[in-house]
Write a protein that binds this DNA or RNA. Structure first.
Lengths: 253, 253
DNA sequence: CGTGGGCTTGATAGTCCTCAAGTCGGGTGG
DNA sequence: CCACCCGACTTGAGGACTATCAAGCCCACG
């Protein structure tokens, strides 16, 4: 059972100079290259661009009528609070969307915070509803985005419910590596950005920071993978994949 | 960590005579009272009605181009398999839909089985895509359905990640009770149908059947709630709710 | 410099799993 | 009709995995 909640203090040190450029050039995530009507709806409901420092909340549980955020650069995470503890439910990477669930359902059951320095485009929450009438292509993308997120959450659930410490950590590493690799963001062949603190891994995997640390050591000792300086370095991919199990293989976009 | 996988053997004994009638009269779930264009698309892509005996698979992980199933009566459950173990991810109640995720994403990462005797209406999987162009009202309902499911899965994830045995069980009870109560299916004030075996509770909550049993005893001994004869009987609602924590309070449709 | 976080590591304890037996009930086949 | 079998359910004893607590280290920041 994870540690208690306390607002994190110090910000992670780095930004990510690289992905800023890369994102804007190569991908715009859900909103890329839409039909004419779809794009105009998008423009009509775009409110502003904003920046968030690490750990700043974008969405709070219980809010009504939240905005929708499209992440331009940086990572965010979505979490829930129960019994005085936090459970991270999903990470949101550049090109992805926060707040869709709340916009569709009318009430927000989770919170979202910036994990790193974050740049986003803010949209009116009504975008979600309106798109279904006025921009079917966009609506379909939004629907798939929610479906993909549900898929990821189910994957994480299965991992926490069925796997032990090392398997969970291997899953998390592989999952985040693949999500970045698919977007061409894994710079070196077996490395990627990995700006999670021990606490974030703990709250994602239902463990404590202390035990995350021990498990991390084990993975490094055995020459499988290591996290240093906010980067994940995979030394033995096939062994990591074997430990993580078939689940992480797919890891829907 | 839950028990190993083995195909269950014997079927649960009862059907549920009551909800059959009630469902058809009071609700048709996602598809009720649609606009003209929406309804006709629905009819065009309805394939058949079917029945499934308990434990029969509707959808298997890895299938491509699956059908969509609308549940008429009975319950189903959606699960994933990792490291030789099963994790139940969601239960599907009358009026709800199975296979939507697969239809939207093009590939299916989970499996679905009948929990009880089941009656469903089968639709062509293309319904999901087509509705976005031809039946926006329907598409919006489907989108919300996926969002609601994502919400439930996140809730369960938080419960497994943050709570101990008794809290997990209390959450499951309250969650399923509320989903039925909202539809007027909780016959007596604090009772409802509860056709889960120990194994299903275990695979839902990331525990073993043996420990489910011990925890169930504890809840009964303390006069909080009991499961007997496929029915959940809540004896002390407020205490159950307090144990379950705020999370189960909402439990989106 | 002092302070506060995050990281690290050890010792201890608790929850829950594992394994194994034994009970119960229904279904099947003689 | 009864014997048998099989699965679900129970319960106990032992052990594994992980949490908890505590202390020390390091770094960035004020």
């Amino acid at each position: 059972l994870p540690t208690d909640i306390k607002d994190q203090g110090k910000a992670p040190v780095t930004g990510n100079q690289f992905s800023d450029v890369r994102n804007e050039r190569y991908l715009q995530g859900v909103f890329r290259s839409l039909g004419a009507g779809d794009g105009s709806l998008l423009n009509a409901l775009a409110l502003s661009d904003s920046r968030f420092p690490p750990n700043r909340p974008l969405i709070q549980e219980g809010e009504i009528g939240t905005c929708i955020f499209r992440i331009v650069s940086g990572w965010a995470y979505q979490y829930r609070t129960t019994h005085g503890r936090r459970q991270i439910v999903d990470f949101l990477l550049p090109g992805e969307i926060a707040g869709l669930e709340g916009a569709l359902l009318g009430l927000t059951e989770h919170s979202v915070r910036a994990l790193t320095e974050l740049r986003v485009t803010v949209f009116d929450g009504r975008l979600a509803h309106n798109s279904f009438r006025a921009a079917p292509e966009l609506a379909l993308r939004l629907g798939r985005h929610i479906a993909a997120q549900a898929c990821r959450i189910g994957e994480l659930l299965a991992t926490i419910g069925c796997c032990d410490a090392i398997e969970r950590l291997a899953f998390l590493m592989l999952s985040l590596y693949r999500r970045q690799a698919r977007r061409g963001e894994a710079t070196s062949p077996l490395q990627c950005w990995f700006p999670l603190r021990r606490r974030h891994m703990a709250e994602t995997l239902g463990m404590t920071g202390a035990h995350i640390n021990r498990t991390l050591n084990q993975l490094r000792r055995e020459g499988i993978a290591a996290v240093e300086n906010e980067r994940l370095i995979i030394q033995d991919f096939s062994r990591l994949a074997r430990i993580a199990g078939g689940a992480a293989a797919a890891s829907v976009p």
